[in-house]
Amino acid sequence: MREAAMLTPNNLSELREALGQATPPSKILAGGTDLVLAIHQGRCKPDLLIDLSGVEELKIIKLTEGRIHIGAMATFTQLMDNQLIKGSLPCLREAASLIGSNQIRSAGTIGGNIGNASPAGDTIPVLLAFDAVVRVLDSSGQAVEQSIDQVISGAGRTSLRRDQVITEIIIPLLGEHYRSTFVKIGSRTAVTIAKLNMALAVKYDETAKSISDVRVGLGAIGTKAFRERQVEEILNGRRVDQCLADTLAEELSAAVQRAIPGRYSLPYKREAVKGLAQSAFANLFPKLYGGVSFTT
Protein backbone atom coordinates (compact mmCIF):
# COMPACT_ATOMS: atom_id res chain seq x y z
CA MET A 1 0.00 0.00 0.00
CA ARG A 2 1.37 3.34 -1.06
CA GLU A 3 0.85 6.04 1.50
CA ALA A 4 0.76 9.76 0.82
CA ALA A 5 3.39 12.01 2.35
CA MET A 6 1.97 14.97 4.23
CA LEU A 7 3.36 18.44 4.66
CA THR A 8 1.86 20.90 7.09
CA PRO A 9 3.42 24.31 6.44
CA ASN A 10 3.10 26.84 9.24
CA ASN A 11 3.18 30.02 7.19
CA LEU A 12 3.01 31.27 3.63
CA SER A 13 6.71 30.92 2.96
CA GLU A 14 6.68 27.30 4.11
CA LEU A 15 3.60 26.84 1.98
CA ARG A 16 5.50 28.09 -1.07
CA GLU A 17 8.25 25.58 -0.37
CA ALA A 18 5.72 22.80 -0.02
CA LEU A 19 4.11 23.74 -3.32
CA GLY A 20 7.51 23.36 -4.93
CA GLN A 21 7.45 19.67 -4.06
CA ALA A 22 4.04 19.04 -5.62
CA THR A 23 3.70 16.62 -8.51
CA PRO A 24 0.60 16.07 -10.69
CA PRO A 25 -1.13 13.64 -8.27
CA SER A 26 -0.40 15.85 -5.23
CA LYS A 27 -3.36 17.39 -3.47
CA ILE A 28 -3.99 20.42 -1.34
CA LEU A 29 -5.82 19.45 1.85
CA ALA A 30 -8.16 22.16 3.14
CA GLY A 31 -11.18 21.02 5.20
CA GLY A 32 -10.97 17.55 3.69
CA THR A 33 -14.73 17.02 3.60
CA ASP A 34 -14.56 15.76 0.03
CA LEU A 35 -10.89 14.87 -0.41
CA VAL A 36 -10.55 12.59 2.60
CA LEU A 37 -13.59 10.60 1.51
CA ALA A 38 -12.22 10.31 -2.01
CA ILE A 39 -8.91 9.02 -0.65
CA HIS A 40 -10.64 6.48 1.59
CA GLN A 41 -12.73 5.26 -1.30
CA GLY A 42 -9.68 4.97 -3.54
CA ARG A 43 -11.00 7.54 -6.03
CA CYS A 44 -8.00 9.73 -5.37
CA LYS A 45 -4.48 8.48 -4.75
CA PRO A 46 -2.25 11.42 -3.91
CA ASP A 47 1.50 11.02 -3.41
CA LEU A 48 1.67 14.20 -1.34
CA LEU A 49 -0.87 16.08 0.73
CA ILE A 50 -0.21 19.71 1.49
CA ASP A 51 -2.23 20.40 4.61
CA LEU A 52 -3.17 24.07 4.92
CA SER A 53 -4.41 23.86 8.49
CA GLY A 54 -1.18 25.22 9.92
CA VAL A 55 -1.19 28.46 7.94
CA GLU A 56 -2.95 30.96 10.20
CA GLU A 57 -2.89 33.74 7.56
CA LEU A 58 -5.35 31.72 5.50
CA LYS A 59 -8.04 31.85 8.16
CA ILE A 60 -8.43 35.62 8.37
CA ILE A 61 -11.48 37.57 7.26
CA LYS A 62 -10.92 41.33 6.91
CA LEU A 63 -12.18 44.44 5.15
CA THR A 64 -9.63 46.42 3.14
CA GLU A 65 -10.46 49.31 0.82
CA GLY A 66 -14.05 48.31 0.19
CA ARG A 67 -13.19 44.70 -0.46
CA ILE A 68 -13.72 41.79 1.90
CA HIS A 69 -10.76 39.44 1.99
CA ILE A 70 -11.63 35.93 3.08
CA GLY A 71 -8.78 33.55 3.77
CA ALA A 72 -9.13 30.33 1.78
CA MET A 73 -9.17 28.30 5.00
CA ALA A 74 -12.09 30.21 6.54
CA THR A 75 -14.65 27.54 7.40
CA PHE A 76 -18.33 27.82 6.62
CA THR A 77 -18.98 28.07 10.34
CA GLN A 78 -16.58 31.01 10.45
CA LEU A 79 -18.46 32.66 7.57
CA MET A 80 -21.72 32.19 9.45
CA ASP A 81 -20.39 33.68 12.68
CA ASN A 82 -18.29 36.53 11.27
CA GLN A 83 -19.78 39.98 11.95
CA LEU A 84 -18.33 41.48 8.79
CA ILE A 85 -19.96 38.82 6.62
CA LYS A 86 -23.18 39.07 8.58
CA GLY A 87 -23.32 42.82 7.98
CA SER A 88 -22.05 43.10 4.42
CA LEU A 89 -22.58 39.75 2.74
CA PRO A 90 -25.64 38.17 4.29
CA CYS A 91 -26.20 36.03 1.22
CA LEU A 92 -22.77 34.44 1.61
CA ARG A 93 -23.68 33.71 5.19
CA GLU A 94 -26.94 32.16 4.01
CA ALA A 95 -25.11 30.00 1.48
CA ALA A 96 -22.61 28.85 4.11
CA SER A 97 -25.39 28.01 6.55
CA LEU A 98 -27.08 25.73 4.03
CA ILE A 99 -24.02 23.60 3.36
CA GLY A 100 -23.95 20.08 4.80
CA SER A 101 -24.21 19.55 8.52
CA ASN A 102 -22.67 21.30 11.53
CA GLN A 103 -19.71 18.96 11.28
CA ILE A 104 -19.20 19.62 7.57
CA ARG A 105 -19.52 23.38 8.06
CA SER A 106 -16.97 23.33 10.85
CA ALA A 107 -14.43 21.56 8.65
CA GLY A 108 -15.25 22.67 5.12
CA THR A 109 -13.71 25.88 3.79
CA ILE A 110 -14.52 28.49 1.20
CA GLY A 111 -11.24 27.83 -0.61
CA GLY A 112 -12.06 24.14 -0.68
CA ASN A 113 -15.50 24.90 -2.08
CA ILE A 114 -13.82 26.57 -5.06
CA GLY A 115 -10.96 24.11 -5.39
CA ASN A 116 -13.30 21.14 -5.26
CA ALA A 117 -15.20 22.74 -8.16
CA SER A 118 -18.43 20.86 -7.58
CA PRO A 119 -21.13 22.13 -9.95
CA ALA A 120 -23.35 22.29 -6.87
CA GLY A 121 -20.91 24.17 -4.60
CA ASP A 122 -23.09 26.55 -2.60
CA THR A 123 -20.78 29.55 -2.25
CA ILE A 124 -19.95 29.68 -5.97
CA PRO A 125 -23.14 31.40 -7.23
CA VAL A 126 -22.69 34.05 -4.53
CA LEU A 127 -19.08 34.66 -5.47
CA LEU A 128 -20.07 34.90 -9.12
CA ALA A 129 -22.85 37.36 -8.39
CA PHE A 130 -20.44 39.57 -6.45
CA ASP A 131 -17.69 39.35 -9.09
CA ALA A 132 -15.37 37.92 -6.47
CA VAL A 133 -11.77 37.24 -7.41
CA VAL A 134 -9.51 34.50 -6.21
CA ARG A 135 -5.96 35.15 -5.13
CA VAL A 136 -3.69 32.36 -6.24
CA LEU A 137 -0.17 31.85 -4.95
CA ASP A 138 2.47 29.66 -6.56
CA SER A 139 5.71 28.09 -5.44
CA SER A 140 7.77 30.99 -6.74
CA GLY A 141 5.86 33.33 -4.47
CA GLN A 142 3.99 34.99 -7.30
CA ALA A 143 0.38 35.86 -6.51
CA VAL A 144 -2.25 36.53 -9.15
CA GLU A 145 -5.90 37.48 -8.99
CA GLN A 146 -8.24 35.43 -11.14
CA SER A 147 -11.99 35.38 -11.57
CA ILE A 148 -13.99 32.42 -10.27
CA ASP A 149 -14.81 31.56 -13.83
CA GLN A 150 -11.14 31.40 -14.70
CA VAL A 151 -10.30 29.17 -11.76
CA ILE A 152 -13.17 26.70 -12.11
CA SER A 153 -12.96 25.05 -15.49
CA GLY A 154 -15.51 22.26 -15.17
CA ALA A 155 -17.07 19.67 -12.88
CA GLY A 156 -14.35 18.88 -10.35
CA ARG A 157 -11.74 20.64 -12.49
CA THR A 158 -9.79 23.85 -11.98
CA SER A 159 -7.20 25.69 -14.01
CA LEU A 160 -4.81 25.70 -11.06
CA ARG A 161 -1.35 24.31 -11.67
CA ARG A 162 0.02 21.71 -9.30
CA ASP A 163 2.19 24.32 -7.56
CA GLN A 164 -0.63 26.81 -7.11
CA VAL A 165 -2.96 27.30 -4.15
CA ILE A 166 -5.94 29.54 -3.48
CA THR A 167 -5.03 31.82 -0.61
CA GLU A 168 -7.82 34.36 -0.56
CA ILE A 169 -11.19 35.19 -1.95
CA ILE A 170 -11.70 38.89 -2.47
CA ILE A 171 -15.18 40.26 -2.70
CA PRO A 172 -15.79 43.87 -3.73
CA LEU A 173 -18.61 45.27 -1.62
CA LEU A 174 -21.65 46.57 -3.42
CA GLY A 175 -23.17 49.81 -2.19
CA GLU A 176 -25.78 50.20 0.48
CA HIS A 177 -28.62 50.23 -2.05
CA TYR A 178 -27.95 46.66 -2.98
CA ARG A 179 -29.92 43.70 -1.78
CA SER A 180 -28.86 40.10 -2.18
CA THR A 181 -30.01 36.63 -1.34
CA PHE A 182 -29.06 32.99 -1.74
CA VAL A 183 -31.60 30.23 -2.29
CA LYS A 184 -31.23 26.51 -2.74
CA ILE A 185 -33.26 23.42 -3.50
CA GLY A 186 -31.96 20.08 -2.35
CA SER A 187 -33.79 16.86 -1.74
CA ARG A 188 -34.28 17.78 1.91
CA THR A 189 -33.94 20.83 4.13
CA ALA A 190 -30.49 20.25 5.56
CA VAL A 191 -27.46 18.07 4.85
CA THR A 192 -28.29 18.08 1.20
CA ILE A 193 -26.48 18.76 -2.03
CA ALA A 194 -28.09 21.42 -4.18
CA LYS A 195 -30.22 20.33 -7.11
CA LEU A 196 -30.48 24.05 -7.87
CA ASN A 197 -28.89 27.03 -6.18
CA MET A 198 -28.89 30.70 -6.97
CA ALA A 199 -27.56 34.00 -5.72
CA LEU A 200 -29.50 37.08 -6.70
CA ALA A 201 -28.17 40.60 -6.10
CA VAL A 202 -29.83 43.80 -7.25
CA LYS A 203 -29.48 47.54 -6.78
CA TYR A 204 -32.83 48.77 -5.53
CA ASP A 205 -34.16 52.26 -6.07
CA GLU A 206 -36.57 52.90 -3.19
CA THR A 207 -38.29 55.83 -4.91
CA ALA A 208 -38.77 54.33 -8.31
CA LYS A 209 -39.24 50.86 -6.78
CA SER A 210 -37.09 49.48 -9.54
CA ILE A 211 -33.99 47.37 -9.80
CA SER A 212 -30.75 47.71 -11.72
CA ASP A 213 -27.33 46.05 -11.89
CA VAL A 214 -29.05 42.69 -11.52
CA ARG A 215 -26.70 39.80 -10.90
CA VAL A 216 -27.83 36.20 -11.16
CA GLY A 217 -25.46 33.38 -10.20
CA LEU A 218 -26.88 29.95 -10.98
CA GLY A 219 -25.48 26.63 -9.79
CA ALA A 220 -26.10 22.89 -10.01
CA ILE A 221 -27.09 23.21 -13.65
CA GLY A 222 -24.53 21.72 -16.00
CA THR A 223 -20.85 21.36 -15.29
CA LYS A 224 -20.17 24.66 -13.54
CA ALA A 225 -22.04 27.53 -12.00
CA PHE A 226 -22.51 30.60 -14.19
CA ARG A 227 -23.83 34.15 -14.41
CA GLU A 228 -27.09 34.26 -16.32
CA ARG A 229 -26.48 37.55 -18.22
CA GLN A 230 -29.54 37.25 -20.44
CA VAL A 231 -31.86 37.11 -17.44
CA GLU A 232 -29.95 39.95 -15.78
CA GLU A 233 -30.51 42.18 -18.83
CA ILE A 234 -34.22 41.45 -18.92
CA LEU A 235 -34.60 42.39 -15.27
CA ASN A 236 -32.49 45.54 -15.31
CA GLY A 237 -34.54 48.70 -14.84
CA ARG A 238 -37.78 46.84 -14.16
CA ARG A 239 -40.26 47.89 -11.50
CA VAL A 240 -40.57 45.48 -8.57
CA ASP A 241 -43.94 43.78 -8.42
CA GLN A 242 -45.38 40.30 -8.56
CA CYS A 243 -45.24 40.49 -12.33
CA LEU A 244 -41.47 40.91 -12.16
CA ALA A 245 -41.18 37.89 -9.87
CA ASP A 246 -43.11 35.87 -12.43
CA THR A 247 -40.89 37.19 -15.20
CA LEU A 248 -37.81 36.11 -13.27
CA ALA A 249 -39.36 32.69 -12.79
CA GLU A 250 -40.18 32.25 -16.46
CA GLU A 251 -36.84 33.59 -17.63
CA LEU A 252 -34.90 31.34 -15.27
CA SER A 253 -36.93 28.40 -16.49
CA ALA A 254 -35.92 29.29 -20.03
CA ALA A 255 -32.32 29.66 -18.89
CA VAL A 256 -32.37 26.15 -17.40
CA GLN A 257 -33.79 24.85 -20.66
CA ARG A 258 -30.93 26.53 -22.54
CA ALA A 259 -28.30 25.23 -20.13
CA ILE A 260 -29.18 21.54 -19.96
CA PRO A 261 -31.27 20.58 -23.00
CA GLY A 262 -32.17 16.91 -23.08
CA ARG A 263 -30.77 16.24 -19.61
CA TYR A 264 -32.70 13.74 -17.46
CA SER A 265 -33.09 16.30 -14.69
CA LEU A 266 -34.39 19.04 -17.00
CA PRO A 267 -38.16 18.55 -16.58
CA TYR A 268 -37.87 18.90 -12.82
CA LYS A 269 -35.30 21.66 -12.72
CA ARG A 270 -37.04 23.93 -15.21
CA GLU A 271 -40.18 23.78 -13.07
CA ALA A 272 -38.55 23.93 -9.65
CA VAL A 273 -36.38 26.90 -10.60
CA LYS A 274 -39.58 28.95 -10.71
CA GLY A 275 -40.06 28.20 -7.03
CA LEU A 276 -36.47 29.15 -6.42
CA ALA A 277 -37.09 32.47 -8.21
CA GLN A 278 -40.17 33.23 -6.14
CA SER A 279 -38.34 32.43 -2.91
CA ALA A 280 -35.43 34.66 -3.90
CA PHE A 281 -37.77 37.48 -4.78
CA ALA A 282 -39.64 37.08 -1.51
CA ASN A 283 -36.37 37.27 0.39
CA LEU A 284 -35.31 40.46 -1.40
CA PHE A 285 -38.68 42.19 -1.12
CA PRO A 286 -40.47 40.68 1.85
CA LYS A 287 -42.94 43.55 2.15
CA LEU A 288 -44.12 43.24 -1.41
CA TYR A 289 -44.45 39.56 -1.18
CA GLY A 290 -46.78 38.02 1.32
CA GLY A 291 -45.89 34.38 0.98
CA VAL A 292 -45.71 31.68 3.62
CA SER A 293 -42.96 29.15 3.83
CA PHE A 294 -42.39 25.82 5.55
CA THR A 295 -41.24 27.54 8.67
CA THR A 296 -44.31 29.69 9.19
Binding site: S187, A272, K274, G275, L276
Partner: peptide, 13 residues
Protein backbone atom coordinates in the same frame (compact mmCIF):
# COMPACT_ATOMS: atom_id res chain seq x y z
CA UNK B 1 -47.95 17.35 5.27
CA UNK B 2 -46.96 20.69 3.78
CA UNK B 3 -46.18 20.64 0.09
CA UNK B 4 -44.32 23.34 -1.80
CA UNK B 5 -46.30 23.27 -5.01
CA UNK B 6 -43.52 25.03 -6.91
CA UNK B 7 -40.67 22.68 -6.03
CA UNK B 8 -42.60 19.55 -5.11
CA UNK B 9 -40.74 19.33 -1.81
CA UNK B 10 -42.86 17.85 0.94
CA UNK B 11 -42.40 18.05 4.65
CA UNK B 12 -44.33 16.30 7.33
CA UNK B 13 -45.16 19.10 9.71
Amino acid sequence: ATVDTMTGLTRVT
